[in-house]
Design a protein around this nucleic acid. Structure first.
Length: 871
RNA sequence: GGUCGAUUAACUCAGUUUGGGAGAGUGUCUUCUUGACGUGGAGAAAGUCACAGGUUCGAGUCCUGUAUCGACCACCA
């Protein structure tokens, strides 16, 4: 083994070996229980960020754990075509070359998009591999692969035939820059400082006017009415009359509608059904026409008269000027309001009436809600179920058509002869209605999330009834960020239930965002993003992985910091060196299996600790508490194993007793091997590299059994007794520091105790670790000599004569401090035991424990007082 | 307006379904180059668990309310 922990020297090599030897491949094996995770497919828009790194690490840790536990573990990787996101990127790239979509044409554009896909998919997969992800690459799926297309068509046609997909004229969100619709969840709202303009609409034939308040005056060309609340005494009598639309000089009716809020503005609202969702509803109720005034690119159309062709904001400016000059504009006040933006390009979204394809949600939502209610799907942490219910219960129909080229084309054709609408899985040749041959496919593509929604089963072979689907579906856990519950999780749930009749996964493990050191969201515009690859290059993948898992609680955001990774790199170094120590000592000897040696007290202690760790880590992992599991392993490895056990071993290793040495080496090897196995799912590279250097091992650690708790070697009592020895060592060390005595100075120890045998048998360890020269058992304090520091411990009382080094004042102060602590404990225990409620209601075991504690502390108090007197 | 989360050491955070002696990492102070590791060892200081009530023999943990911060959803002419 190399002297230094140098991840670069083995990470890539090990990954190649794992992959080439087929360790990641999951093949149906009916003798095993399947455990399946489908990877949330990263977008092929660019490269992986820290959020991905966290997502992949969580999944890899879980899947490696399950694989070692003997499950047939499948982690299925993939990438997402990310329709709009990718198209935006490609168009940007083309723009830099002076090209436009129109110039290339659909065919040419798609060719370019596929080339893009090749490039970025490769890059992303390389990055995922760098992290150590043990996914089955032979199953790598892209959301626009042939099999996904088949799944999309099947699903679409199913829904269409059940009337759950329809085409209709409705208000949708329109991005004038991307020139496509967006679903409701694709719109991001941000508060903006705007204005509220009060505009006079004269009542027909009168000199009187109604004043409407609007934030978007330019839409007035599409006004088809003004509404007042029917309960509003101010305006009630005007209902049924007309007002004259300024500038346009056209009469439009005054309608009575609840939508008009008497409290807001003037209580009169203009109705523009084509450009506002609420107005659209009002329009439906009053059978008003729908007048669209804007083009797809956000410019005004011919309805805007002389403003035709102008951008919406330019038009607003000029129109306001005209209104003001005409005396129509009565007031302009600042008004903060939420404005919707395209989640991909940031452009202000326009609500526009348009003919689009929709998924009818009501019927699909109900079983999806029930599935979570009935615990067929469990959110971890549970609170996210509520978020899910809130959304699902109020969900509106899902607009799925996009005016883009990159994506799954909508499987609907129109007969140019009879006008029939044909929805079929396979491209139709002739019109089934009239037999006509000129059919045109719908120009639009589907929302990228339509194919993502099918991901858990499209990847396994749906719509075919495959063996994989039967075996691996439903999948076991979906690991993803809480930010895509609406986009993705909910849609997978109702899609799985609809198309597969089964939920897509049993558990949903949510994680939060990875933020920067200051708690800010990592983003391009802030420039505070950290590239996982750079971190791996600097510290190694294991350090990054461990830092991302350490201290995470499900669903909580975490902060990334270099300092944290560095601390983890130190941990790797610690593991590396401890292992090197064990391996070096085991090198030229035949390592016996644990069963063939007689463990001593320290050996039993570490073996016992190990059993507890096995139990607790397994429990934590089963509950997806990866952060907790990390902490347990970190503490055990560093403190128990390295700081204590290895040090405790040294007397035996360097002493002359061969049997002892043999036994210690067996235990060292046993504990290290198990620790490596326990750690492997979290830090796969270093653990495998060391494992291969361990005596008596063969092959990769990743296919070995995960350690199981063994009650036969749990040694609970022995371990507790040994803690007494450790207390002695700690006490000596502390006494030396407190009194300014150098640790290297060897001291004599005098002990009053009932555990002489235990102490004798561990004399070597005590002498070595405490820095002592001898131990003498005594029966009273006086025997320790005149000036001795006393340490009252559970195992007994320890006296250390320190001659000149002891400062009597310091020692008195120390003892008084100790007395104070003990008195506090006595008060606490006494209080409890004198509390009749506690005595009557607390479990007997607890009362007994408390009484024993009190006795112990009382004895300690006596000793300390005696000591103070002697000083 | 609705929902949810956070508030624990100087900093970053664990502490859960099942209430029973406040934890880790980083930083700080003291100290040690002893044959795995100075990316280290040993020891220490450091907390009114946001606040106020309540339930309980007992609350960081359960309940109610308040404050501050944050997220999401909805509405906003």
């Amino acid at each position: 083994m190399e002297k230094k922990y140098n991840p670069k020297s083995f990470e890539d090599r090990l990954y190649r070996e794992w992959e080439e030897s087929g360790c990641f491949k999951a093949v149906r094996d009916d003798s095993k229980v399947p455990f399946t995770i489908v990877m949330p497919p990263p977008n092929i828009t660019g490269q992986l960020h820290m959020g991905h790194a966290m997502d992949e690490t969580l999944q890899d840790t879980i899947i490696r754990f399950k694989r070692m536990q003997g499950y047939c573990a499948l982690w299925l990787p993939g990438t997402d075509h990310a329709s709009i996101a990718t198209e935006v990127k490609i168009v940007e790239e083309m723009k830099r070359e002076g090209l436009s979509k129109e110039q290339l044409g659909r065919e040419g554009f798609l060719e370019r998009a596929w080339a893009w896909k090749e490039k970025y998919e490769n890059r992303i997969c390389t990055q995922i591999k760098k992290l150590g992800s043990s996914c089955d690459w032979s199953r790598l799926t892209f959301t626009m692969d042939e099999k996904c297309t088949r799944a999309v068509r099947e699903a679409f046609v199913n829904l269409y035939n059940k009337n759950l997909i329809y085409r209709g004229n409705r208000i949708i969100n329109w991005c004038p820059r991307c020139k496509t619709t967006l679903s409701d969840v694709e719109v991001e709202y941000a508060e903006e400082a705007g204005h509220l303009w009060h505009i006079k609409y004269f009542i027909e034939g009168k000199n009187d006017a109604l004043v409407v308040a609007t934030t978007r005056p330019e839409t007035m060309f599409g006004d088809v009415a003004v509404a007042v609340n029917p309960k509003d005494a101010r305006y009630r009598r005007l209902i049924g009359k007309n007002v004259i639309l300024p500038v346009v000089n056209k009469p439009i009716p005054i309608v009575g509608d609840e939508h008009a809020d008497m409290e807001f503005g003037t209580g009169v609202v203009k109705i523009t059904p084509a450009h506002d969702p609420n107005d659209f509803e009002v329009g439906l109720r009053h059978r008003l026409p729908v007048v669209r005034v804007m083009n797809d690119d956000g410019t005004m159309n011919d309805k805007a008269g002389k403003y035709e062709g102008l951008d919406r904001y330019e038009c607003r400016k000029l129109l306001l000027k005209e209104l003001s000059e005409g005396g129509y504009l009565v007031k302009e006040e600042p008004h903060a309001h939420n404005v919707g933006h395209c989640y991909r390009c940031g452009c202000t979204v326009e609500p526009i009436v348009s003919r689009q394809w929709f998924v009818k949600m009501e019927e699909l939502a109900r079983p999806a809600i029930d599935a979570v209610m009935n615990k067929k799907v469990t959110f971890i942490p549970e609170r996210f179920a509520k978020t899910y219910y809130n959304w699902m219960e109020n969900v509106k129909d899902w607009c799925i058509s996009r005016q883009l080229w990159w994506g799954h084309r909508i499987p609907v054709w129109y007969c140019e002869e009879c006008g029939a609408e044909i929805c079929e899985k396979n491209d139709p040749e002739v019109c089934p209605v009239c037999g006509g041959k000129s059919l045109a496919q719908d120009e639009d593509v589907l929302d990228t999330w339509f194919s993502s929604a099918l991901w858990p089963f499209s990847t396994l072979g749906y719509p075919e009834d495959t063996s994989d689907l039967e075996y691996f579906y439903p999948t076991d856990v979906l690991v993803t960020g809480y930010d895509i519950i609406f986009f993705w999780v909910s849609r997978m749930i109702f899609s799985g239930l609809e198309h597969m009749r089964k939920v897509p996964f049993r558990d949903v493990l949510m994680h939060g965002l990875v933020r920067d050191e200051k708690g800010r969201k990592m983003s391009k515009s802030l420039g505070n993003g950290v590239d996982p690859l750079e971190v791996i290059d600097k510290y190694g993948a294991d350090s990054l992985r461990f830092s991302l898992l350490q201290g995470v609680a499900p669903g909580n955001d975490t902060r990334y910091s270099d300092a944290k990774v560095e601390a983890c790199a130190n941990f790797m170094n610690k593991i590396w060196n401890a292992s090197r120590f064990v391996i070096t000592n085991a090198e030229n000897v035949k390592v016996k299996p644990l069963q063939q040696v007689k463990p001593g007290a320290a050996d039993k202690w570490i073996i016992s600790k190990l059993q507890a760790v096995i139990r607790d880590v397994t429990l934590a992992l089963n509950k997806y508490e990866l952060g907790v599991a990390c902490q347990i392993l970190y503490d055990f490895t560093w403190s128990d194993f390295c700081d204590w056990y290895i040090e405790l071993c040294k007397p035996a290793l360097y002493g002359g007793d061969e049997a002892k040495k043999e036994s210690v080496i067996a235990v060292l090897t046993f504990v290290l091997e198990n620790t490596l196995k326990l750690l492997h799912p979290f830090i796969p590279f270093i653990t495998d590299e060391i494992y291969r250097n361990l005596p008596g091992t063969e092959g990769t650690i990743m296919l070995k059994d995960y350690p199981r708790y063994n009650s036969k070697i749990a040694y609970k009592r022995d371990a507790a007794a040994f803690e007494g020895i450790m207390d002695i060592i700690k006490a000596v060390r502390a006494a030396k520091t407190e009194l300014g005595c150098p640790p290297s100075k060897k001291v004599s120890l005098y002990i009053v105790t009932e555990s002489r045998r235990l102490i004798s048998s561990n004399e070597d360890s005590i002498l070595k670790l405490a820095g002592a020269k001898d131990i003498t058992f005594i029966s009273s304090a006086q025997e320790a000599g005149e000036k001795a520091v006393a340490k009252v411990l559970h195992i007994g009382t320890l006296y250390i004569p320190m001659g000149e080094l002891v400062d009597a004042d310091k020692e008195r102060a120390r003892l008084e401090g100790e007395l104070e602590t003990v008195m506090n404990e006595i008060r606490r225990a006494d209080g409890k035991l004198n509390n009749s409620g506690f005595m009557m209601k607390a479990p007997k075991k607890l009362v007994d424990e408390e009484r024993a504690k009190l006795d112990k502390y009382m004895a300690m108090r006596e000793k300390i007082l005696e000591q103070l007197k002697n000083l």
